[in-house]
């Protein structure tokens, strides 16, 4: 096998390594397919051997595949696309933060497992969002895809959990509600489940304005939410918007809402493309 011999010779001569399973168990192995690197490169710092399949001959490719399969089957190696590996590392980093540990350990046994899974994912989405804000760019696409992943698995309820966690309502509504158990007579776990379910279902009685909504839709959604909230005896509505376009839409609509409800009291906070409006009924 001329091709394979050349690969072995290449590794030995250029990298002072031997092409065998030990190479795969002792080093980090990376597989790529591009025009930018040699068929094999070695990074001593990270002990990474990179194979570029584009520059390997067929026999060399077959040998790489054989060794990868041995590493996978006998040495319990996991094969993972690099972006997914990066996501897992970021996820682990995020989940090791004091805030995440506090949130996740508190809610793990008090909300349903599906909601807990959505909450965990929401913490990650929130960390990506905060990072992008800190870096001065709202990473709309990335956030959109991550939220899409939650919707695919947990539907609208998962998305609601993501929105209300991001807006702080797990801390300001759901946690205080849970803390009432044992403090308020007759406030049981069943009552907590029932009420927290309403909070999630109704997006914490808030309106999260979405990018594709027209100005008319924004106004209609706010008025509808006011009606729902008053039905529950909730005498306020919070409005959240992210992005310059949404900030403008919300600011255009608020005077119409004030006209429709003349006694309403308004608080408005705005910073770097983020707007929060609280409307209270006296």
């Amino acid at each position: 096998m001329v091709g394979l011999d050349s690969l072995e010779a290449f590794i030995k001569a250029k990298l002072n390594l031997t092409l065998n399973i030990k190479l795969f168990s002792d080093n980090h192995i990376h597989v790529e397919n591009n025009d930018n690197s040699e068929k094999i490169e070695y990074d001593e710092g990270t002990k990474t051997v990179s194979f570029n399949t584009k520059n390997l001959s067929q026999p060399e490719k077959e040998e790489l595949g054989r060794l990868l399969k041995i590493a996978f089957e006998k040495h319990n190696k996991l094969l993972l696309e690099e972006k997914s590996e990066e996501t897992i590392q970021n996820l682990r980093l995020e989940e090791s933060s004091e805030e995440s540990i506090s949130v996740l350990s508190y809610f793990k046994d008090i909300i349903p497992p599906e909601d807990y899974e959505s909450l965990r994912a929401s913490l990650y989405v929130d960390s990506v969002f905060k990072k992008s804000v800190a870096e001065g760019e709202l990473s709309g696409d990335k956030i959109y895809h991550l939220k899409g992943d939650i919707i695919k698995k947990h539907g609208t309820r998962g998305l609601n959990i993501c929105k209300i966690y991001g807006a702080g309502y797990f801390d300001t509504m759901i946690r205080p509600l849970h803390e009432l158990i044992g403090k308020v007579p007759d406030f049981t776990k069943e009552k907590f489940d029932e009420r927290s379910n309403i909070i999630i279902k109704e997006s914490a009685f808030a309106v999260f304005v979405q990018g594709q909504w027209s100005v008319y839709r924004v106004e209609a959604e706010i008025k509808e939410k006011i009606k729902i909230n008053l039905g529950y005896g909730i005498r306020f509505v919070n409005i959240h918007g992210i992005g310059d376009d949404l900030v403008e839409k919300i600011k255009r609509v608020i005077p119409n809402i004030e006209n429709a409800y003349p006694n309403i009291e308004k608080t408005l906070e705005e910073s770097v493309g983020i707007i929060f409006v609280k409307l209270r009924f006296p």
Binding site: F24, H28, V31, K69, N76
Partner: peptide, 21 residues
């Protein structure tokens, strides 16, 4: 880097799949 992980870039997905038939 996560221990015991072999990584691959997106462009090598089909090669990896091919190794596993």
């Amino acid at each position: 880097m996560i221990k015991d992980v072999i990584t691959f870039e997106a462009s090598a997905k089909e090669d990896i799949l091919s190794f596993f038939d």
